[in-house]
């Protein structure tokens, strides 16, 4: 019993270290530029202001970036849920030529850095006339090897008897997938959905190269360009921008965290 208190102390200090930068961000977003530059810095805002958020939503075009990020993330998530569960089922439960080769190929691409594909991808998408467009932002991410792996692992755990029962009842193979097996994967779909949404929301390199005008920026692109461009010294605006980027995923993660940690346990991947 005696040694538990200091274990909790270390644990709490760790939590403080993790949380402090986030608190610093939220509190900073309500400070004036003058207060942000004060030495020594203030912890609590002395004269709290929402000016930074006003600027974000009027001078800067953050509502548009927010809509862009949301739209891209939703479509990418829908695509992954649909296509990854389809191929995941085929890889786990159907017998066809080349199945193992296909699986190995998909797994091998998990290792490929985004840097390797983005230049030819940029050439391809540009030549297809899709640069600076929503399809250009979305199409390359509609499927992911991670999603295929996660769905395959989950389908492997479902009993084959269900499929056989469906066949006896005269269902077609696609009917068995859509009506019998797919509804059973709801936990895996929840995990894949939340992880894909978070990944898309935070994605940076591809939107950075393919979104060329402000009206197509996603939130991370806008924040990064603001922070390195002419607004680099506008600390309050950047803090408020970081809040707008981070807060939705924090809320979403806290609401669905069970699915996230379970997904990591299923696949060992994040």
């Amino acid at each position: 019993m005696r040694r538990t208190w200091w274990i909790y102390l270390i644990g709490v200090l760790g939590l403080v270290a993790v949380a402090a930068p986030f608190l610093w961000m939220v509190l900073g977003s309500f400070k004036t530029q003058g207060e942000l530059l004060r030495v020594p810095p203030t912890w609590w805002p002395q004269d709290a202001t929402t000016q930074n958020y006003n600027d974000l939503f009027s001078k800067a075009n953050f509502p548009r970036y927010f809509v862009n990020s949301t739209l891209v993330a939703l479509v990418v998530t829908a695509g992954n849920l649909t296509f990854c569960s389809m191929i995941g089922y085929a890889l786990a439960k159907l017998r066809f030529k080349g199945r193992n080769a296909l699986f190995v190929l998909v797994m091998a691409t998990l290792m490929i850095p985004g840097m390797v594909t983005f230049v030819p991808l940029f050439v391809l998408v540009t030549n297809a006339g899709l640069a600076n467009s929503y399809p250009g932002l979305i199409l390359p991410f509609l499927v992911s090897p991670f999603g295929v792996f996660l769905m395959r692992q989950f389908f492997l755990g479902l009993p084959d008897d269900l499929m056989d029962a469906g066949r006896v009842d005269g269902s077609g193979e696609l009917g068995i997938f859509a009506r019998i097996m797919l509804p059973l994967t709801r936990p895996a779909l929840a995990t894949l959905g939340i992880l894909t949404f978070l990944g898309s929301w935070n994605n940076f390199l591809w939107p950075l190269v393919i979104a060329q005008t402000e009206d197509k920026y996603t939130l991370p692109v806008a924040l990064a360009l603001y922070s390195t461009g002419q607004n680099a010294q506008n600390y309050g605006l950047l803090m408020a921008g970081a809040v707008v980027v981070v807060l939705p995923v924090l809320v979403m993660f806290l609401a669905f965290q069970r699915h996230v940690t379970k997904g990591i346990a299923i696949t060992g991947l994040k």
Binding site: G14, L15, V18, A19, A20, P21, F22, W24, M25, G28, L36, L37, R38, V39, P40, P41, L198, W201, N202, F204, L219, P220, L223, A224, S227, Y235, L238, M239, G241, A242, V245, V246, V249, L250, F253, L254, Q257, V260, T261, K270
Partner: peptide
């Protein structure tokens, strides 16, 4: 959940915040 929180957040946003955490005089 607390320790895992930073993992789900945007690296860009984190980097922006840390620039202020690491600022020379007014930094945390």
């Amino acid at each position: 959940v607390g320790y895992y929180l930073p993992v789900v957040t945007s690296i860009v946003a984190i980097a922006v915040i840390w620039r202020f955490v690491l600022a020379p005089d007014s930094g945390l």
